[in-house]
């Protein structure tokens, strides 16, 4: 599929690269986002990269739609960056127990042990495909095929904030308490969204990579205290 434009009303345009979940497509989306941002066009309010497309929100009374369309198709030709350039994160997670009430069920449904599930999730080098659904909510992929499970038949009305959850090929962390139908494997003490950091409120960005590190309850509590008292900051979650 060649990159093409879709009308999202009169105040937004979507540059679509494809209709699949695919790391190469996503890398092209992010490259186009970077190329368009570098053009500094007046009248654009938001550039929203998704799995497979880039949505541009703009004021059509300030920025001519035809001119923007041409620039977007130019930006679509930008070469995708090598993934080595993205930020690599290592996020501590306490698996199972109250923090991960679905771990046992996931192990049972996949015919593996709980330790196998934890090992597989921690061994996965996950790409941040997009941030959406809730402020700071990262869609991560892709998990090994044997871990792909449909969503829960009955979604929970309240998934606790900081839960690590999986569904299909995807993993995510809920930065906020919210309804949700994914399987809860654990919790991280790391804050994924910080409104006081106006320059970069979301910890993760599309194109970053994430690996999880299993910690026990004691270490989880120790890290949570260190975060609460400011002894731990964002730099502590970078891949060593």
């Amino acid at each position: 599929m060649n990159p093409h434009l879709l009308d999202l009303g009169d105040g937004a345009l979507t540059l679509e690269f494809g209709d699949r979940i695919d790391a190469d497509l996503n890398a092209r989306v992010i490259a186009a986002r970077d190329a368009l941002a570098a053009m500094h066009l007046d009248g654009i309010s938001d550039l929203v990269p998704t799995w497979r497309s880039l949505t541009v929100h703009f004021d059509p009374l300030r920025l001519d739609r035809a001119a923007l369309s041409a620039r977007l198709l130019d930006a679509a030709q930008a070469a995708a960056q090598k993934s080595e350039l993205a930020t690599r994160w290592r996020i501590p997670v306490c698996f199972g127990g109250e923090a991960g009430p679905d771990l046992a069920q996931v192990a049972q449904a996949t015919g593996r042990s709980e330790a196998d599930v934890v090992d597989a999730v921690c061994a996965s080098d996950l790409r941040v495909f997009l941030i959406g659904f809730l402020p700071g909510f990262p869609y991560l992929g892709e998990l090994p095929a044997w871990l792909h499970l449909p969503r829960r038949a009955t979604p929970r009305t309240a998934v606790p904030a900081n839960s690590l959850a999986i569904a299909g090929a995807q993993a995510a962390i809920y930065p906020w308490q919210s309804p949700g139908g994914w399987h809860l494997l654990g919790q991280t003490p790391v804050r994924l969204f910080d409104v006081d950091n106006a320059a970069r409120p979301a910890l993760l960005a599309p194109g970053d990579s994430v690996r999880f590190r299993a910690v026990d309850q004691d270490e989880f509590q120790h890290l949570a205290n260190a975060i609460a008292t400011g002894k731990c900051g964002r730099g502590d979650w970078l891949e060593p």
Binding site: T14, I21, V48, T50, W51, L54
Partner: peptide, 11 residues
């Protein structure tokens, strides 16, 4: 079902 893409008020 589509692979999620951008939405906006009014969509």
């Amino acid at each position: 079902d589509i692979v999620s893409d951008g939405v906006t008020p009014g969509a």
